[in-house]
Simulated scan of single mutants.
Amino acid sequence: MGGKTTVISISAVSGGGKTTVTKELANRLNNAKTFHFDDYNLEGPSDICAWMEKGANYNEWNVSPIMIDIESLLNDAVVDYIILDYPFSYLNNQMKDVIDISFYIDTPLDIAMARRFIRNPLHTIDEVLFECEVYLQAGREAYLEMEKSVKPNADYVIDGEMTVEHIVEAIMNKL
């Protein structure tokens, strides 16, 4: 351990590459630990559409379970890097002070949606059509909210059309 633990946040829309980049970055950095937002059962808005219509207050998400795990590592100073697969960058007050540097992977929405389909293969055309309908009714608005709020909040915006290797290299160059 060479000193202070650096906490890195990786944000992007769903399907934007957060998890893949987080894992690859952890492989490239020495003594790194990852935390993935989706691994936690967090209290937050039950209706994302209504949440966005009310102004998308990121503080309505209780990220205490993640914070407990992060603070445990920070207090013990056992890792050089903590990498967060975390969609909110600095927008949640519980988390913002612990993050040292935030990256937003700017992935075009069509690529992100295609990745979601590939990641969770659907079995019938009806399921594909249903997912497309959900995207058009609500999902697209969530993607646009991320671009409007999270993207400008990050320290660095990385081109999500690059390969994972190039994205990780761009992040490493900023660190």
Results as ranks from 00 to 15, higher is better:
Ile101Gln: 01
Ile101Arg: 00
Ser102Asn: 01
Ser102Trp: 02
Phe103Thr: 01
Tyr104His: 10
Tyr104Val: 05
Ile105Ser: 02
Thr107Met: 06
Pro108Tyr: 05
Leu109Gln: 14
Leu109Cys: 14
Leu109Ser: 14
Ala112Ser: 14
Met113Ser: 15
Met113Leu: 15
Met113Val: 15
Met113Thr: 15
Ala114Cys: 10
Ala114Ile: 04
Ala114Pro: 08
Ala114Lys: 11
Ala114Phe: 05
Arg115Val: 03
Phe117His: 09
Ile118Glu: 15
Ile118Gly: 05
Ile118Val: 11
Asn120Cys: 10
Leu122Tyr: 04
His123Asn: 14
His123Gly: 15
Thr124Phe: 02
Thr124Met: 03
Glu127Ser: 12
Glu127Cys: 11
Glu127Arg: 10
Glu127Gln: 13
Val128Tyr: 06
Val128His: 03
Val128Gln: 03
Leu129Val: 10
Glu131Gln: 09
Cys132Asn: 14
Glu133Trp: 09
Val134Tyr: 15
Tyr135His: 10
Leu136Thr: 02
Leu136Asp: 07
Leu136Gln: 12
Gln137Leu: 12
Gln137Phe: 08
Gln137Gly: 01
Gln137Met: 11
Gly139Phe: 04
Arg140His: 10
Arg140Gly: 07
Glu141Pro: 01
Glu141Arg: 07
Tyr143Arg: 02
Glu145Asp: 14
Glu145Phe: 01
Glu145Pro: 06
Met146Gln: 08
Glu147Asn: 12
Lys148Tyr: 07
Lys148Trp: 03
Lys148Leu: 09
Lys148Thr: 12
Ser149Cys: 11
Val150His: 03
Lys151Gly: 03
Lys151His: 03
Lys151Phe: 02
Pro152Leu: 06
